[in-house]
Design a protein around this nucleic acid. Structure first.
Lengths: 149, 149
DNA sequence: GCTTGACCTAAACTTAGGTTCAGGAATTAC
DNA sequence: GTAATTCCTGAACCTAAGTTTAGGTCAAGC
């Protein structure tokens, strides 16, 4: 264990449960920007644990790395984020989650309306082109899901 | 428009909204098995439209191609599926959807419990290792999500 | 002071769900 | 009957989110 000047990448990995390669990957994606020591090894602060934890929660909620990066860009620059900062930006997840749940509930209603008939008609069932938001829950073909370029 | 002996792949594409390449891809994955005409071109029946529609709905609900294949394996062999057949197997989606919604609701509760504090603690927040089922809603690192080999 | 384990980078590989391309063959339209 | 579409196959390419590997450097234990 490195005692002075921060945690090594291995320390951070064992504290978060992430793999070392994943932490390096998140850095490459711009989600975390550690210092380096004289030997060019990464050194992390305690607050980076919270940063990675946030990434994990956000992923569970279904955000992509790009989206997480955008959200984290709203953290204060120039100082270590406080608990209040994290609490504030976590609140957005509530909304995202609500939307996703609502979308699936609408899907369920449409499905209920359709189950009886078995028609599966593209025109009639309204199970298609359902919600523009939160696409990519299932991946699916771009054209139909609404990702068309 | 081909009048006799079935639809061409292009016809099927325009009737379903899928791309021709996607239809060929689903065939490669074993989801659909068209006949061929004398010139080796694929010929489809009307019932294949329903088949593809089913695939689309299943994807929206979040099933992978492999899972869809498994579900469709329960259709009757040797005869064209009826509406009743489709209706029956569509019913399973209800359950899948219910589970997914329940999972997201549990997630929301946990999040609510955590939003106030901003701690994002891996130990305390219980936002981790949440539900074994329906993993891969967000992709995330295997190790944490529970996909470990 | 040297060996072992942790760390470094860059590049290649992985899975899912497709798309795009190259080089031909079949069909359709006029 | 010929030109324009559509279709065929196989292989390469794409994105996301990482993992694995190769070849080398750093740090820690004894």
């Amino acid at each position: 264990m490195a005692m002075k000047r921060g945690l090594s990448i291995g320390d951070l990995a064992s504290r978060t449960g992430l793999s070392v390669s994943a932490i390096r990957f998140y850095e490459k994606k711009g989600l975390i920007t550690p210092d380096r020591n004289d030997g060019n090894q990464r050194r992390y602060e305690g607050s980076d644990i919270r940063r990675l934890s946030f990434i994990l929660i956000a992923q569970q909620i279904g955000l992509s790395i790009e989206q997480i990066k955008d959200v984290m860009a709203q953290l204060p620059e120039g100082r270590t984020p406080t608990k209040a900062d994290w609490s504030k930006i976590s609140r957005r997840f509530r909304k995202t989650l609500d939307e996703r749940i609502a979308m699936m509930e609408r899907m369920r209603e449409r499905l209920d309306g359709c189950i009886g008939c078995g028609c599966l008609s593209l025109k009639a069932c309204s199970l298609y082109n359902p919600d523009d938001k939160a696409r990519r829950l299932g991946v699916g073909p771009r054209f139909v899901i609404g990702d068309a370029r």
